[in-house]
């Protein structure tokens, strides 16, 4: 019989990460395009930001799916700690897949970045909370950020931020999934 140490979780984490990475990329794209095609409101409460929050909420279930795949592959016996590790790696794969897709998309839709940048700038210009003197500074900062979209620094930042967020959140969901979907390993009896 396969011992707990021999059971690999890479397949489960990789599959769940790829599926949820694609889903959160899709949700963020829906948010981005809805912002591009909407009138600037000046509020941060646009569908773009709501889509980010929805993407995160959905993304938490990546760890659960990772554990589910592991159980389908190897049976329900797993330690809670292994559930946490599966969740962590699922989150890291999700971050990787969603960032790679975000980098590929502007090559498919050549006007995406420019349209998105214009929508963001229009939204800042319409924002009443930012004093006029600071608006220019904020727009310059945003413009510089978009110009450096493909720079190694920006890619690393996107990857790091999403890895931290999705990785850590999925540690929690993975260990909860192991608790409620798994059973203690036989060899510990």
């Amino acid at each position: 019989m396969e011992s707990a140490e021999q059971k690999s979780y890479w397949n489960a984490a990789g599959q769940a990460g790829a599926i949820f990475g694609f889903i959160i990329f899709l949700i963020s794209m829906i948010g981005s395009y809805s912002m591009i095609h909407a009138e600037p409101t000046g509020s941060f409460f646009s569908f773009y930001y709501i889509a980010a929050a929805i993407g995160c909420l959905v993304g938490i279930f990546g760890g659960v799916l990772g554990v589910k795949f592991y159980i389908n592959e190897h049976g329900p016996e797993l330690k809670i700690g292994k559930g946490a590790v599966i969740g962590l790696f699922t989150g890291l794969f999700m971050a990787l897949v969603s960032v790679v897709l975000s980098l590929i998309w502007p090559m498919i839709d050549g006007s995406y970045l420019e349209n998105f940048q214009n929508a963001m700038i229009a939204n800042i210009e319409a924002n009443d909370m930012i004093p006029d003197a600071q608006k220019e500074e904020a727009i310059d900062g945003m413009y510089a950020q978009m110009q450096n979209y493909f720079s190694p620094g920006n890619i690393l930042q996107m990857l790091g931020m999403s890895a931290i967020m999705y990785g850590l959140l999925n540690v929690i969901s993975g260990l909860l999934a192991a608790k409620f979907m798994g059973t203690p390993p036989e060899e510990e009896l």
Partner: peptide, 13 residues
């Protein structure tokens, strides 16, 4: 930037 993955961050809220 970090929490932009998880929250709408609307300043009025």
């Amino acid at each position: 930037e970090l929490f932009s993955f998880a929250c709408h961050q609307d300043t009025s809220r």
